[in-house]
Simulated assay, not measured.
Amino acid sequence: MTSLLPPVPVALARPIPTLPVAAPGRQLAYEPKFDGHRLLIFRLVDEVQMQARSGRIVTRVFPDLVAAARRLPVGTVLDGEVVVWVGGRTDFAAVQKRATAATEARAARLARELPASYAAFDLLASGTDDLRPRPYEQRRALLTTLLEPLGPPLQAVPMTMDPELAATWYEAFPAIGVEGLVIKSPDQPYRAGRHWRKLRHSETRDALVVGVVGPRLRPRALALVLPGDDTPVVSGPLSPAVRAQLTTALRDLPPPVVADSDPPTAIDTVGAWIAYQPIAPELTVEVRQESTVRHAATAVIRLRTPE
Score class of each variant (00 low, 15 high):
residue 142 L to T: 01
residue 281 P to N: 06
residue 217 L to K: 08
residue 265 T to M: 15
residue 85 W to E: 14
residue 7 P to R: 04
residue 285 V to R: 01
residue 20 P to T: 05
residue 37 H to N: 10
residue 252 D to I: 05
residue 6 P to M: 07
residue 200 R to M: 09
residue 302 R to N: 08
residue 205 R to A: 08
residue 19 L to F: 06
residue 270 V to R: 15
residue 49 Q to W: 10
residue 267 I to G: 01
residue 180 G to W: 03
residue 42 F to I: 01
residue 23 A to T: 11
residue 162 D to G: 09
residue 208 L to R: 10
residue 287 V to Y: 02
residue 94 A to W: 03
residue 66 V to M: 07
residue 185 S to N: 13
residue 274 I to D: 03
residue 25 G to W: 09
residue 39 L to R: 00
residue 266 A to R: 15
residue 78 L to S: 01
residue 75 G to K: 02
residue 169 W to H: 09
residue 1 M to L: 15
residue 282 E to I: 05
residue 226 L to G: 07
residue 201 H to N: 13
residue 177 G to S: 08
residue 263 P to H: 06
residue 252 D to A: 15
residue 276 Y to M: 07
residue 55 G to T: 05
residue 9 P to F: 11
residue 11 A to M: 13
residue 234 V to K: 02
residue 83 V to E: 02
residue 22 A to G: 05
residue 40 L to W: 02
residue 285 V to S: 02
residue 159 M to G: 04
residue 90 T to I: 14
residue 50 M to C: 07
residue 192 A to S: 14
residue 302 R to D: 12
residue 161 M to E: 14
residue 153 P to Q: 09
residue 133 P to Q: 10
residue 182 V to L: 04
residue 300 V to R: 05
residue 278 P to R: 13
residue 245 Q to D: 13
residue 209 V to I: 10
residue 47 E to K: 13
residue 296 A to G: 12
residue 291 S to P: 13
residue 61 V to F: 00
residue 34 F to Y: 12
residue 21 V to I: 15
residue 151 G to L: 11
residue 173 F to E: 05
residue 170 Y to R: 06
residue 153 P to N: 12
residue 46 D to Y: 08
residue 222 L to H: 01
residue 168 T to E: 14
residue 267 I to D: 00
residue 225 V to A: 11
residue 202 S to G: 11
residue 249 A to R: 03
residue 70 R to A: 11
residue 100 T to M: 12
residue 123 L to V: 00
residue 36 G to D: 05
residue 39 L to C: 02
residue 51 Q to S: 04
residue 28 L to R: 04
residue 80 G to M: 01
residue 223 A to F: 00
residue 278 P to K: 06
residue 254 P to K: 10
residue 34 F to K: 00
residue 152 P to W: 12
residue 258 V to A: 08
residue 299 A to C: 11
residue 273 W to A: 15
residue 60 R to S: 12
residue 196 W to P: 01
residue 11 A to P: 00
residue 103 T to E: 09
residue 267 I to N: 05
residue 280 A to K: 05
residue 204 T to M: 08
